[in-house]
């Protein structure tokens, strides 16, 4: 997942996105590619001591004038946009609270708002619900689904639990030790397929 926007350098192979070779892109171009790819993390990765809105505005860093952003100045339009995005994930009242005052689910929603600030064409969600309880997990997945269905943003989401996969995924790719072992629709994954993916001894939990 992190190889797609080269947070980790791939050791072999190429990544092509939107006609661009991500693997060989020089720094400048890589930043332009990265700013169009939103990312949501398992551990939310917010800056705890910063305000929620600052965390969300950080999503604009690839777009704004670097010199001004170093002084913590963002265009008024971006600030308004950040408030709108926070409103969308239901956190507008918390905009000026510190990020570490928020609960886990709220923090992940801030993470989604941050990704939305990038006006992304793709969102990489790296186990976005693995540190949340099932109810919150569905809440977060529904936001991602909404972004996917209504904004037309591609969402690549890694998940552990098959019930979430069955409920939200349109297309499933299963990897085992770095190799694709399954590619298809969620409906195709039955118990037999499950054993093939996870190994003969695995048991389903969800």
């Amino acid at each position: 997942m992190r190889c797609i926007n080269r947070l980790i350098e791939p050791t072999a192979g190429t990544i092509t996105w939107d006609g661009l070779d991500v693997t060989t892109a020089p720094q400048e171009e890589l930043r332009r590619i990265r700013r169009r790819i939103g990312m949501v993390f398992q551990h939310f990765n917010l800056v705890h001591r910063s305000k929620v809105i600052t965390n969300v505005l950080a999503g604009r860093l690839g777009y704004v004038n670097p010199a001004l952003s170093l002084l913590n100045k963002f265009p008024q339009a971006d600030v308004q946009k950040a408030l709108d995005r926070l409103d969308r994930v239901g956190l507008a009242p918390k905009a000026y609270a510190r990020a570490d005052e928020l609960s886990g689910g709220q923090q992940q929603r801030v993470g989604i708002a941050r990704a939305l600030m990038q006006d992304p064409q793709m969102i990489l969600a790296d186990e976005p619900v693995a540190s949340l309880d099932p109810v919150l997990a569905h809440g977060i997945m529904q936001y991602l689904e909404d972004i996917n269905k209504n904004d037309g943003v591609m969402v690549i989401c890694s998940l552990h639990f098959l019930d979430l996969v069955h409920r939200y995924a349109d297309r499933v790719i299963a990897l085992n030790e770095g190799r694709v072992v399954f590619e298809g629709t969620p409906a195709q994954i039955d118990d037999a397929m499950f054993k093939e993916i996870y190994g003969q001894d695995a048991e389903r939990v969800g």
């Binding site: 947070l7 590619i33 700013r35 990312m39 993390f41 551990h43 990765n45 917010l46 941050r114 600030m117």
Partner: peptide
């Protein structure tokens, strides 16, 4: 984490 997240925004 935050460094990774901010890098990912470009």
């Amino acid at each position: 984490g935050p460094i990774e997240a901010v890098t990912a925004t470009g």
